[in-house]
Design a protein around this nucleic acid. Structure first.
Length: 523
RNA sequence: GGGGGUGUAACUCAGCGGUAGAGUAUCUGCCUUUUAAGCAGAGAGUCGACGGUUCAAAUCCGUCCACCCUCACCA
């Protein structure tokens, strides 16, 4: 007997503390389990294997529902499989609802029809059990399309009771009772969440669809999907603190990647002109509504392109997703209607700061910017230069106002160590971030392909690191060497998949779009 | 890390100093077209953990844990 199973999980501390008392208590705690086990035994006595090796079905439930009249008039004998979700038994007859991943169908089991022995088996069923029902479709007296069982077969007994959620249809609207809503339980036991809250599954279906559409869009544009290392001897491509792990055989520490960027650029060097990857990044940082320590990114790199091309590509890709997922070039998030109609606004960071704060930072005058920041109550870190302060002003004054899709372009060079300088503007780079609804959704550059400049930039980052900036980039000699062999002019783009899914599913928490979000251990 | 909130039966919750409650689920009985099926009955809880105050704590106080919200941090 396993005591560590779900409903006893919380009680397990007791086991350490007081074994005897726990033993007594288990009598009570086990009651539900014991009942189910008794049923298992009874099934075995009846010669029924509660966990048979084979199952069989002729139709998914949706097929029956979509062709009700045909199945009723033909009286075709069909077999469905699924989980028993509700049960209404009354003496020598009973009803229940079976769900498979396509739908939900009422079954009608009558003692006279299935026979005495099979009816005994039916009576031993519990909510949550997997069953196979062979029978014929018909309409009940109340007019509900149902399956009249000829044979009830057990496919898998459940031992733990599913939380009970009941539904009633009032004026065509579903009313739910005793919903499974405890957020902590929903995240920790996502399988129950999926089972009991159908709209949760919908979120993840949209997620899958978005990813599928990204793939087909990029495939159409002849991007090659690649896989690059998650375990890396050095990390880079973003400003973030990494997770560290250890490889025993090599006896080296390895980092979990924080970005895909540097390996993709190596592939561009290698002559693959268009690459993309959808994968997990890992950042050892704070968690909140929009941050999970592991999260999904799309990165793509295109040779002979620049950040203007990346803006066009981003527009086209998001419009493509919106049309496929939402059937229109727009999405409603909360009360806000977001329009993806091209073209999206493109405005420089410095112009936007000036527009919203009245402050002109175009001259990069450090003392001037610093005193304005201090006036505005912005903390000035000791490693901050004018570029970082401009970004801070941007975050404070501009970010929350960018509701409709906006490309914020031309970031300070100081905070963009992997982006190419904007011609004629030594303090700026050809970089943009995409903002929607006040949140960042993407980041892109005309990629820096000058190995000498790149080395200087990484060395400058390294100095910041020495001064205490734990998120500054590290110098990656192997990457620099690749650049020295020559990288073509390249445009690169990163899109946060989770946030995009949040946008299209109208969710404000990243935990709603990640099946198993990071949670603290329970003990 | 700061502030606020929540934690009671398998699920949803009530109780907020006098020794544990409801509905659902489970079990028993009745019921051959129900659908939140119904009727009658039963069992089921270290009231998140630890400590304190009190004759008496689910309830008051403190500490801790988990989760949620919010601010800070963080591309």
């Amino acid at each position: 007997m396993t005591f560590s199973r779900d409903i006893f999980f919380r009680k397990s501390k007791l086991m350490n503390r007081n074994m005897e008392k726990f033993g007594e208590k288990m009598e009570n705690l086990n009651q539900l389990l014991a009942v189910k086990k008794q049923k298992l035994e009874k099934l075995k006595v009846l010669g029924v294997d509660p966990y048979p090796t084979r199952s069989f079905r002729t139709h998914k439930i949706k097929v029956l529902i979509n062709n009700k009249n045909d199945f009723i008039s033909s009286e075709e004998v069909v077999t469905i499989t699924g989980r028993l979700k509700t049960m209404r038994r009354q003496g020598k007859v009973g009803f229940g609802n079976i769900t498979d991943d396509s739908g939900n169908l009422q079954i009608f089991v009558k003692k006279d029809t299935v026979g005495e022995e099979n009816y005994e088996i039916y009576k031993l069923l519990d909510l949550g059990d997997f069953v196979q029902i062979k029978g014929v479709c018909f309409n009940t007296q109340r007019g509900e399309f149902s399956l009249r069982a000829h044979v009830v077969t057990v496919l898998g007994k459940s031992l733990l009771p599913l939380p009970t959620v009941k539904e009633k249809i009032v004026d065509g609207k579903k009313q739910r009772f005793d919903e499974f809503t405890d957020i902590e339980l929903r995240y920790r036991k996502r399988y129950l969440d999926l089972l009991l809250n159908p709209e949760v599954k919908k979120n993840f279906e949209i997620r899958a669809q978005i990813i599928k559409e990204i793939r087909s869009f990029l495939d159409e544009k002849e991007f090659m999907e690649v896989e690059t290392p998650i375990l890396q001897p050095l990390y880079g491509g973003a400003n973030a603190r990494p997770f560290v792990t250890h490889h025993n055989t090599l006896n080296v520490d390895l980092y979990m990647r924080i970005a895909l960027e540097l390996y993709h650029k190596r592939l561009i060097v290698g002559g693959i002109e268009r690459v993309f990857e959808i994968g997990k990044n890992f950042r050892n940082e704070g968690m909140d509504r929009t941050h999970n320590p592991e999260f999904s990114m799309l990165e793509l790199y295109q040779a002979y392109a620049d950040y203007n091309d990346m803006m066009d590509l981003t527009e086209d890709m998001v419009v493509h997703i919106a049309k496929k997922v939402n059937n229109k070039e727009a999405v409603t998030f909360g009360d806000t209607e977001i329009s993806f109609q091209k073209p999206w606004r493109r405005a420089s960071m410095i112009d936007l700061v000036k527009e919203e704060s009245g402050f002109d930072a175009a001259d990069f005058d450090f003392e001037k910017i610093k005193s304005f920041c201090e006036e505005q109550g912005i903390d000035v870190e000791n490693t901050a230069g004018p570029g970082k302060l401009i970004e801070a002003l941007f975050e404070k004054f501009v970010e929350p106002k960018l509701v409709q899709p906006t490309f914020v372009i031309d970031f300070p060079k100081e905070i963009s160590p992997l982006a190419k300088v904007k011609p004629g503007h030594p303090n700026l780079t050809e970089r943009f971030e995409l903002f929607i609804n006040g949140n960042e959704y993407g980041n892109a550059f005309t990629e820096l392909n000058d190995p000498i400049d790149q080395r200087q930039r990484l060395e400058a980052q390294s100095k910041l690191r020495e001064m205490g900036d734990v998120e500054a980039n590290v110098v990656d000699e192997d990457f620099l060497e690749a650049l020295e062999y020559g990288m073509p002019p390249t445009g690169g783009l990163g899109i946060g998949i989770d946030r995009l899914v949040m946008l299209f599913t109208n969710n404000t928490s990243i935990k709603e779009v990640i099946f198993f979000p990071q949670m603290k251990p329970e003990e």
